[in-house]
Amino acid sequence: MENLIKTFFIKHRDFVHAGKPSIEIKNILKSLNTPPDIIRRVAVCGYEGEMNVVMHAYNGRMNLALSATRIEIRITDKGPGIQDIDQAMQVGFSTAPDEFREMGFGAGMGLPNMKKNADRFEIISAPGEGTTITMEFKTRGSDG
């Protein structure tokens, strides 16, 4: 059963507010005494996901769901979708324009880093239909 569900909205090209939701999630988890390593992994995944929406999609939202045993982050966007998911998952692959690279993004590390940091990582995407990424983090035990 989920105890807390919170939704954050993410806007395309909004570099001023991007990252705020992930910092808020970090602070929520901190206040719940979540172990620091888990907080860091959740925040990194949320932030990388936010930046993907800001750079590539039109707009999107990030849902945080918490229970006693798990944390789930789901990022859904209305965007162009991903042509080739296997290629997008490769370290160093990026379709980000130079404009975003100059700001320190588009290194092609985001998706693989999200997969690495989450206990479960699922990506659903199709060209023209947007992208949904679901990540789960276990907070207690291994059987969840």
Partner: peptide
């Protein structure tokens, strides 16, 4: 100067040298 590089490594308790004087450098 790449935020993802910092987020990929173990940056806890670190000092970050960067040429990016942006909000995202602080948030990352």
């Amino acid at each position: 100067d790449l935020m993802s590089d910092l987020l990929t490594a173990d940056s806890a308790g670190s000092l970050i040298l960067t040429g990016l004087a942006t909000q995202q450098a602080v948030r990352a």
